[in-house]
Design a protein around this nucleic acid. Structure first.
Lengths: 140, 140
DNA sequence: CAAGAAGATTAGAATTATTCTAAGTTGTTG
DNA sequence: CAACAACTTAGAATAATTCTAATCTTCTTG
């Protein structure tokens, strides 16, 4: 039995947007719900756009792109481009890595603690590391 | 003093193409020379196309794309897509990784022996690893 | 709560990287 | 050197993404 708070899902998502400094508009709320409703996901703009349509949420493709980028700049999402044909947005913004199934183009998370990078050279020119991505490409 | 073999560079490149099972056409030879003449490089199709033009090598952009893909499929090049806007071709096909300068979009090789990945989870579903890419993203 | 400004949304055009098409050219092999 | 497959090409086509400029919303603030 869940507590009977009306539209609890909405409230959470609304707070996430506000906390990030993004106006919780109708379309952002709807998209954020699709993205964050449950578990971590890897979605393309086109995919999210189609999901929205399927649920009769009326958003333009441009808005989907805008929202994805806005969310990314506020660290609610992380952008991944492995395959140059299109990019994916990952709802998991924590430290982690990826399996990439070359055949299907699917991505799967690898928890950070499952990978250990024992040595890395110092960045040239004293540059600072913004992050280290490990992509394990799979044939199957 | 180098030995006076006429167009030694050509001969090498020609052999590389033949060994790979690619017909050494005029345009492939020219492009291969630009690519492999000295040291390792990371080039985009557009870049290579411009270099060719600059040297009055008459190739169409389609041929540049064809050649890059043909070379890649024969392991003379390796394709890298980090930034979804365009992909790069790396003349270093050996085991190695990359620094990626987020500001400039530039790539720099990291020798394989400089990175040590101590642990990796088993690929799901018994898939085989085709390769592991480590990308160290740099802020500077 | 009304009004205005800042911020968001939108349809559709524009842009960019890349691939395709179909016709002409060239390298290789017998 | 003929024949054929492989290659090249200009330009059209496609796909993902961004831009434009007009219109709507949301958030102050009085």
């Amino acid at each position: 039995m869940r507590p009977k708070i009306p539209s609890a899902g909405n409230v959470t998502v609304l707070e996430r947007l506000r906390d990030a400094g993004l106006r919780p508009t109708r379309q952002r709320l709807a998209l954020a719900k699709l993205l964050f409703a449950r578990g971590h996901r890897h979605v393309s703009a086109e995919q999210l756009f189609n999901e929205a349509k399927a649920q009769r949420v009326d958003v333009s493709l441009a808005t989907v792109y805008n929202a994805l980028h806005d969310f990314t700049s506020k660290d609610l999402l992380r952008e991944i481009s492995i395959d140059s044909s299109s990019s994916y947005f990952d709802t998991n913004t924590g430290d982690h890595h990826h399996f990439y199934f070359e055949q299907s183009g699917r991505l799967e998370d690898i928890a950070a603690h499952q990978v250990s990078i024992a040595a890395l050279p110092a960045p040239p020119g004293g540059a600072k590391i913004s992050r280290v991505d490990v992509i394990v490409r799979l044939k199957g």
